[in-house]
Every structure is written in C-alpha cells, then in structure tokens.
Design a protein around this nucleic acid. Structure first.
Lengths: 238, 238
DNA sequence: GTCACATTGGACCACCGGTCCAATGGAGTG
DNA sequence: CACTCCATTGGACCGGTGGTCCAATGTGAC
C-alpha cells in the first residue's frame, strides 16, 4: 500500500518551437476509413490500432479522433463499406431462390476474403452492415411470396445462419496456423460420430475433407427447402 | 526524435522485508476458472481481466500465469464449463427432432443467461465447447437417419445457425443500453421491407415486437423442415 | 489585412496482457 | 527431528493500447 517508487519528470513537458508542419492534403473520415480497411486486410484484426492508422496517414492521434468517435466506428464503417459493395451487386433480376443463394454466397466469399468482417458482423446486430444484409434478404423473401411474421422468422433464420457460418469460417481461417488443434478437433469429432453408428470410423471422413464453401451452400439449401415446407413435424410444445 | 523528457526512479526497486504472507488455501486451475466465470457473469466480457481475477482471488499475477497460459484459456475454459453442463443435460431419450429442438433451445438459453459465451463460441471453431455442441448435434442427427456427407452438411448448418443466432442475440443484449440505435435499426428495416410490397408500413410491425426466443425456435423448425426435403429447387449451378 | 475557428499533432493518462524473478514455506529425505 | 529443495506465489516491470486534452496552426471569411 505504501508508496515505494517515485517518478519525476526532469525536462519541461513541451518545447514549443520546432513543430512538424501542418499537412497539406486534407484529412477526412473517408480517407481514415479507407486506411483502416487497408490495415485490416494486411495486418488483420489485431493490427488495427489507432496508432497504426496514425502512422499510415502520417498524422497525429488527435486528428483521427476529430473525424471519428473511436475504434468501434472504424471497424463498423470498414465492414459497412465491404458489405455495401457486396449487397448492391445482386439485383432483383433472378429467380428469388437463386438470388438468395447468390446473395448468401457473395457474403460468404466477402468474409472469406476479409475475415475481420465476419468478426465485426457478430459484434453488433444493429450496425449498418448488418442492416444491409437484412434488407437484401427481405427483398428476395418478399419476391418469394413469404410475408408477415413468416418473413421475419425466415429472414432471421437465414441472416443468422449466414452470419454464424461466416463467423465460424473466418475464425477458423484466422486460427489456421495451429492446425494441430484443428486436426485433433476433427479426429475426436469423427470418432464420436462414428461411435454412434456401428460403422468403422472411415465413414466420417467427410468431416476431414470438406469444402467450407460447398458446405455453406448446402446449409443455405436446407433453409430454402425448409421455407417451402412451413409445418414441421417437430413444432409444438417445449 | 530527440529525447525531451526523462523519467527517473528514485527509490530502489524492491525492499525485501515486509512481504505479504503466503496464502494458506491452495490455488488451482479450477478455482481460477470458477472465479473467471463469476467475474464474467457479473462484470461482463470486458470485465474479465487478469488483474480482476488476481483481485478476486487475493493473489498476484504470477500465481495466475503459473496455472493458466493466459486470458484466452480462461475464456475457453469458462465457456466449456457452461456448454458442458448444457449439452450433457439432454439425453437421447426423446424423438430426435424434439431432442434437436430442445438441445438448440438449451444452448440459446444458456447464451442468453451468459452472453459472453456467445461471443466466445464465435471466436474459435476448434475449442472444446464447440466440439461438445457438434457431438450432441451429430448424435441426434444420426438417430434421425441422416448419414454420410448429408450429416456433415446438416450438422454444420444447424451448428452454424445456432451459434450465429446466439451470438447475434448475445451481442444485442450487450448493446441493449442504447436502444436508440436499436429502434432506428428496426424502423429503417421495417420501412425498407414495407417499401418492397406496396402495403402500409404497419405490416412490418413483427420486426419491432418479436420475441428472440420464439424467433430462434422458428428458425430451428425451418431447418428441421428442410432436412426432410433434400432436393431444393434452387440447388444447381452458381 | 486580420482574425476567428476548424483542424491538427502529440504529450499524457489509466489500463491492459504477459514476463520475470526473488522470497517462501510445505513436502520429502536423512 | 532438522534440513534442504523446489513447486508455488506475489508483485515489479515492460511494451503497448484506446481515449482525452490542449497549444499551435494556417486557412477561409470578412
């Protein structure tokens, strides 16, 4: 509890002369977000620090906080930029189911290319990027003839599946360094699954040699199939 | 680049006498994880710091790191503890679809009670807690007669949906403080959805007054329905 | 020409996770 | 029973983080 060490500043805090010159090209929120995306794509999620942005733009930290409220806004804006680009790409031209499939796939591939987006989308459900996704899904569902509360439920199911799968995939790609853990995981899972049915464990090899992208699409198809079959045998109490 | 300020320590670093006594009750990994769960439940995800654990257990930081590799392990172990308790609760007694529904619901409710679990499960797909979920889902799917690659696909779809929905719900609950943003989100979404169909915007009121738990179950039902309808109209190229 | 004010740079603060090491005291040995 | 040894512990220390604050600045409006 007692004070054991004392630190002392010897030299006065600031020497007013010799200040670096003011920048000529103006700073703007867009430029800052753009720089953040570059940092995220090259250095990953943990690489995005306000200091890194500062360095990347050759400026000081006060300048950043003047244009942006904080790191959270940077992440949200960066994700919104990417998702925006993705969602606006799919017009309402195709058959609704195909359009939904295509939209889901584009989101998956965007997150595959920018894993940090997956993490960010899971962080806050009420951010612009997620709103864009909901809008897109809703539009296609409406063209599919799903209405009323059913549309809310179906939209929630699809959005949650897409975000969940993408987040898992992104996190998996991020941790890909230690595929010892990955192998151990898949092995024990294969063993347990095989132990349920009497077969030899070879039958669970699908677990080891699967393509995330294809498996993702298979999941979308399951949901689409479920949409056309409103009454499940299982619904009821509980 | 020039050195402007110099800090100096005045008092020698350690004064060897007067050390607090050694603790009598032994520290253990389990006790540390237990304390972490308590902190997470009371102070939230951001409240879990190694220093907080240190204070909570009235010890020093070296003692913690002697039993545990770091903060990541604390989070993973804490989540594993909770999920473990949840998954083992559902025995293979019931009809498979009901069992899957019940398992999903128990996971959802656990994450609802401990939002930090939702975030943690999305952080790393190859952690013990997630493995438990995969095992449980796989067992019920097998009893449902889903086999081979179809089981992998179905399992992945369900696990990803459950984790995605739970993570979104947990994040939403965490950000519940500023329901201004929440309201804005739901309002714009309702407007956009209503603008697709020509109706007045009142029809999208389901968005505003929905029950997350019920909507989650509706999603599970859509998935279960999709399982019994293997061939979707949409599958194919793309 | 001058001057107010939006913009900028960076020092500062409180805090974090992780490493390191000396002190400690109970378990094992003689 | 004395003694040693080492697993366990406490906390100082380090490099780094996000956010606040304010003096300096130069540019556009008058």
């Amino acid at each position: 509890m007692d004070q054991r060490s004392i630190s002392v500043k010897l030299v006065p805090v600031t020497s007013p002369d010799q200040r670096s010159p003011r920048r000529s090209d103006a700073l703007s929120r867009d430029r800052i977000v753009e720089a953040s995306i570059e940092i995220l794509d090259t250095a990953g999620e943990s690489g995005l620090t306000v200091r890194a942005v500062t360095t990347h733009l050759a400026t000081g930290r006060g300048a950043i906080y003047h244009h942006v409220t904080g790191k959270d806004e940077l992440l949200a804006a960066a994700a919104a930029g990417i998702i925006d680009h993705v969602v606006t790409g799919t017009g309402p031209g195709d058959e609704p189911r195909k359009a939904l499939r295509a939209l889901a796939l584009r989101i998956f591939e965007a997150i595959d290319a920018h894993p940090w987006v997956g993490t960010q989308l899971s962080r806050d459900p009420f951010q612009p990027a997620v709103l864009r996704i909901w809008s897109g899904v809703g539009a296609h569902l409406q063209r599919l003839g799903v209405d009323g509360p059913a549309r809310s439920d179906a939209g929630a199911a699809l959005v949650n599946y897409v975000l969940g799968a993408a987040a898992q995939h992104a996190a998996g790609a991020r941790h890909a360094t230690d595929d010892a853990a990955r192998q151990a995981f898949l092995d024990t899972l294969a063993t347990r699954w095989a132990q349920f049915d009497g077969e030899a464990s070879g039958s669970a090899s699908h677990l080891r040699e699967h393509d995330d992208r294809q498996q993702f699409l298979a999941g979308v198809d399951i949901f689409l199939a479920g949409l056309s079959r409103p009454d499940s045998d299982a619904s009821g109490d509980i």
